[in-house]
Design a protein around this nucleic acid. Structure first.
Length: 756
DNA sequence: GAACCCATCATTTTT
DNA sequence: TGATGGGTTC
């Protein structure tokens, strides 16, 4: 037997070797599931002689797909690149391109992101003269998305909601939205899934082809699949029935996005002959961390039930600290990271929070204490204005039917084509059943277009010329040509030099991305494939793990990752679990929050710190939230606290949340000797009060070791040149022109610039 | 066409 | 509190 199997434990090995028939792998956090999955693929190819192209492996994110591919590559000498390893959406897009005609699309269809969806929905809602308050694009889209994820089409939706006014309206918006999408030869993310189901239903030959091809199917993160994904999986697996799904019901945290935990809970009902494998040995965390996490998750009903164990050391206790305000909390965390620097590096630390809004203060404190950090999430690279503009040019060149794209760039850069003109053209297009771009091409036939006519023709000429070039040019050259011909940069300059510079840098990044793409992907239709990649990839390699930086991110974003030191901030009832969850009073939602907590806790390898604030500003109101019930679900003797922080002391007489529990939650996890009562005060954590004053306030200009013209480095903005120093009200103000971030005015005492 | 003001409204998010 | 968007005004 090969060495790669010897490194596996019993359960993992069974997961690898049980290649035939349906298999459900319940893999706890940190149980080496990716390892088992990749070994399984290698085993299929190497031992079972399965052809790589007969294997389909589905992951949830592109990042996970990349990771799996490289691991499989390492285990299989050749042919590994023929294995389909991709996300549901990418796999579906690939299938749909080949069979687009079967469902009334052309293979050059474009993929809409949320912004495009909103733009389109706005246009759909507008002519109906509905109260915009009751029918916000976002809300309508959310309902439609939920319907799609549940595989409810417009007709069925209409039937199901025929008895209420709003339902009927949404139904017609849904139908019209779909009609316009198709007219634009565009699909939104959900359509990629639904349309694949539709394709397989309408075109049995296509389904058969893929059933035949994918003899071995693996699905990772199965607990987060929705109805559409479930359907696709079962349809594909119906052929050879070699379906292996891997997941952890305790880590299902995407219900709000349509994930249906029943898919994993009921797998055995769906496949009564399924082999069920439990991977419960955790290789990641210390005993203390695991034990605490086990206690929390034990409060959930409706689980498959499993108990993670580890051979790792018990390690340090989980710590809980409650500070006065959110500022104190952030400061405690950052200071603790700073203090722990001797034992672990910044790169080994992560600070997790429930909502993105919490990141700001953490950022501020990192800057203040000169702790380098990396913020995960936030604004997506491909959603930036300048990037979207460029992409819409490419989309227009590629697919003239995409009205949303054409309308976006028609007047960008400004060509003096106003809203009135746009509406007239749109009207003409609608009445002649042609696309917006086709209407532009016929501008001479549209009445009242005498003045804009010339400008419009210049635009269509430009697109025609660019289309010509697209045949021979690389995408990189095409983008450069677009920039040149549209004088895009000049337009940007009008908005300010600094702004323009950073926007141009982003475009530069897009261009190099295009260059890199073509280098490794020389297949035909590069433009279409490039656009698809961009649409389906969340961000430009989020994996810039460069340097030693603390990671700040939401609990959701932390799934699948691990860090030696983990801090979870905002452990307050009202924040986490969130107020919305508590207000609905739905125990299912609370359980999802608890799973989220479990996910967060199990990210930690060595140390886990939980923190809360006694009060915090939220939406302009000061909130006094009690300590999170999740903290209170951890037995006191597993927690290290200081006298101000003991959970049962905290939160009394404050806040007034519905359904607040007092004291410890009742149910306890199985196992362990009967733990009782709260630890009394006393376990000392040492000082957690830090000086905020002297070191970080006023800086005398004379004492600064840099002056105008010097090169300096900033934790967040990187390197730059000092433009000037001036005496401000409270501190010396430094103006720096950063290479990447542009010109910023900073307070010397705050910015902690280092001369380089 | 752009600057400005006021109202509104706030989880989580990958694809 | 803060970002965002619509509407108004110049």
């Amino acid at each position: 037997m090969d060495t790669y199997l010897q490194n596996l434990n019993e359960a993992q090995r069974t997961a690898v070797r049980t290649t035939e028939g349906p298999v459900l792998v319940l893999a706890g956090a940190g149980s080496g599931k990716t390892r088992a999955l990749t070994c399984r693929i290698a085993y299929l190819i190497r031992e079972k002689g399965v052809k790589p192209w007969n294997i389909l492996a589905i992951t949830f994110t592109n990042k996970a797909a990349r990771e799996m591919r490289s691991r499989v590559d390492a285990l299989v000498e050749y042919g590994a690149d023929a294995v389909w390893i991709s996300t549901f959406h990418a796999a579906c897009a690939r299938i749909l391109r080949r069979h687009a005609e079967s469902i009334g699309y052309s293979s050059s269809f474009t993929i809409y992101d949320t912004d495009d969806q909103k733009t389109l929905m706005k246009q759909v809602i507008k002519p109906l003269n509905l109260d915009p308050k009751d029918y916000r694009e976002k809300a309508v889209l959310a309902e439609i998305s939920a319907a799609k994820n549940a595989l409810i089409g417009p007709e069925q939706y209409k039937k199901e909601h025929d008895d209420d006014y709003r339902g009927r309206k949404i139904a017609s918006l849904y139908a019209e939205y779909q009609r316009q999408l198709q007219q634009n030869n565009a699909m939104d993310f959900d359509d990629l899934l639904c349309n694949t189901v539709e394709l397989f239903t309408k075109d049995p030959f296509a389904l058969e082809e893929y059933q035949d091809r994918f003899r071995y199917i693996l699905v990772d993160e199965y607990q987060d699949t929705n109805a559409a994904q479930f359907r696709i999986t079962s349809l594909l697996a119906a052929g050879h029935r070699n379906l292996c799904v891997v997941g952890d019901d305790d880590q299902s945290i995407y219900k709000f996005r349509g994930a249906d935990i029943r898919n994993i809970l009921d797998f055995e009902k769906e496949y009564p002959d399924a082999t069920v494998i439990r991977m419960e040995q955790n290789y990641r965390s210390t005993g203390s961390i695991l034990e605490a996490a086990n206690y929390v998750i034990a409060n959930n009903k409706g689980r498959k039930g499993k108990r993670l164990w580890t051979e790792n050391d018990q390690g340090e206790k989980v710590e809980f600290h409650r500070l006065d305000t959110e500022y104190d909390e952030a400061e405690w965390i950052v200071s603790r990271i700073l203090r722990g620097k001797e034992t672990t590096s910044y790169g080994n630390c992560a600070v997790l929070y429930r909502s993105n809004a919490q990141s700001r203060i953490l950022e501020e404190k990192c800057i203040q204490f000169n702790v380098p950090y990396r913020l995960v999430g936030g604004v997506n690279f491909y959603q930036r204005k300048e990037i979207k503009d460029m992409i819409c040019y490419l989309k227009t060149i590629q697919n003239g039917q995409d009205d949303v794209a054409v309308q976006r760039i028609l007047n960008v850069p400004r060509r003096g084509i106003g809203q009135v003109t746009m509406e007239r053209v749109a009207m003409y297009a609608a009445s002649h059943s042609i696309s917006f771009f086709e209407a532009l091409e016929q501008v001479k036939l549209i009445p009242g277009m005498e003045r804009s006519g010339k400008k419009i023709q210049e635009f269509t000429d430009l697109i025609h010329e660019l289309r010509q070039l697209a045949g021979t040019f690389s995408i990189q050259a095409l983008l450069e040509e677009i920039l040149k011909r549209t004088k895009y940069e000049e337009e940007l300059q009008k908005e300010g030099a600094v702004e323009a510079q950073s926007r141009m840098e982003n475009i530069g990044e897009l261009i190099s991305k295009a260059a890199g793409f073509e280098e490794e992907d020389a297949e035909e239709e590069p433009l279409g494939r490039f656009l698809e990649e961009i649409a389906l990839v969340a961000d430009v390699d989020e994996t810039d793990d460069d340097g030693e930086r603390v990671t700040l991110m939401t609990l959701h974003a932390s799934k699948g990752l691990e860090f030696p030191h983990v801090y979870i901030s905002g452990m307050e009832d009202g924040l986490f679990p969130s107020r919305m969850t508590l207000q609905t009073g739905d125990p299912g939602e609370l359980e999802e929050e608890r799973r989220l907590c479990y996910v967060g806790m199990t990210r930690a390898r060595e140390r886990l710190f939980l923190t809360a604030a006694g009060s915090r500003w939220l939406h302009g109101e000061k909130q006094y939230y009690p300590v999170s019930r999740f903290v209170r679900e951890i037995p006191a003797d597993l927690l290290k606290t200081d006298r101000n922080s003991t959970p049962e002391r905290s939160g009394y007489g404050t806040g007034s949340l519905p359904g607040r529990t007092t004291g410890m939650a009742g149910s306890r996890a199985a196992g362990g000797s009967g733990r009782a009562g709260m630890a009394s005060f006393g376990s000392q954590t040492g000082s957690f009060l830090f000086r905020t004053g002297k070191e970080f306030t006023r800086q005398d200009p004379g004492k600064l070791d840099y002056r105008a013209g010097d090169r300096v480095r900033h934790v967040k903005f990187g390197d730059g040149t000092v433009v000037k120093l001036e005496e401000g009200k409270s501190d010396t103000e430094v103006t720096v022109l950063f290479d990447k971030a542009g010109e910023k005015k900073l307070l010397a005492g705050f910015a902690k610039l280092v001369r380089i």
